[in-house]
């Protein structure tokens, strides 16, 4: 065996020992922050997205894709509703012809959008640190669709994965969980107290602002609800017709 081969083999052994030490030290000090494949969630789809995400190290991007699919699902027709019926309802709302003014089109229909929770858990299985899935998903499932237990389960998962007392996200999830509990037992006064702490009108998603406005209304705080709908109407021009309908009803209630 030539001298260069001996040197080569010796360096391979030494370098391998150093690499092994560095790797095991890093692995011991930094726990892999995602769920293993054995805990994978399924919806109707096959798990190609999850497997692809794990094989190529693209979990965060795959979670984004699932989240976009979730938003499209929630914006689309409900179960039992055709695409035409859905578009008709949307057109009615846009023209202010809708008769059920008190709630949103699919408000309080606890059977609508059944897959919402499964889709949200699929997104957070891929990326359990995806705050918006917990924040927006739980508002849609819990406050809008009134499936409180599913929303609470989603939020609890978010609280566990995102434990960090110094993080605003962590506290917002905790507030959402508490507000949901009060909303479930129709204790709107306490729900409002918490939602007000949790929601920043300039920063929070539209769905949360609508939740707060509706909770004000349920608690009889019509003036506060009206004020918030005015704010929504200014901040989100596409919500103007919906907000105008709400403001009209609220103005009537204040007057009457």
């Amino acid at each position: 065996m030539s001298k260069s081969v001996v040197w080569g083999l010796a360096s391979i052994i030494i370098l391998s020992v150093v690499a092994f030490t560095l790797r095991t030290t890093a692995e011991n000090r930094y726990i892999y922050p995602f769920s293993p494949v054995s805990t994978m969630h399924y919806v109707d789809d096959n798990p190609y997205l999850e497997l692809g995400a794990m094989f190529f190290g693209l979990r965060s991007m795959a979670a984004d894709i699932v989240w976009i699919k979730t938003l499209q699902y929630y914006g689309g027709p409900t179960e039992g509703e055709t695409r035409e019926e859905h578009e008709h309802h949307i057109a009615e709302e846009a023209h202010g012809d809708h008769h059920h003014h008190h709630h949103d089109r699919h408000d309080a229909d606890t059977t609508a959008y059944r897959k919402l929770y499964a889709l949200c858990t699929r997104a957070v299985w891929l990326d359990p640190y995806f705050f918006h899935v917990y924040n927006i998903g739980s508002a849609a499932i819990g406050f809008v669709q009134e499936r409180y237990d599913e929303a609470a389960a989603l939020l609890k998962e978010g609280v566990v994965w995102n434990y960090n007392p110094n993080s605003v996200h962590y506290w917002r999830l905790n507030y959402a969980l508490a507000a949901l509990g009060y909303e479930k037992v129709k204790d709107y006064k306490n729900a409002i107290a918490i939602l007000e702490k949790m929601i920043d009108p300039d920063d929070s998603p539209l769905i949360l602002l609508r939740v707060l406005a509706n909770t004000y209304e349920k608690n009889g705080d019509y003036r506060k609800s009206l004020k918030l709908w005015k704010f929504i109407s200014h901040k989100f021009p596409d919500q103007e017709i919906k907000a105008q309908q709400k403001m009209k009803i609220l103005a009537q209630r204040i007057a009457g």
């Binding site: 690499a19 560095l22 790797r23 030290t25 890093a26 692995e27 000090r29 930094y30 892999y32 922050p33 995602f34 190290g57 693209l58 979990r59 965060s60 990326d127 640190y129 995806f130 705050f131 995102n162 960090n164 993080s167 996200h169 962590y170």
Partner: peptide, 28 residues
Amino acid sequence: NFQLFNLKDKLGIPEGMPLDIVSMVLLY
């Protein structure tokens, strides 16, 4: 272990990945 280098999937983690571990991983 390419997952150790996969910091782009960990951008959303509140505490991130400690820099001393990052340096260790890069040396590895």
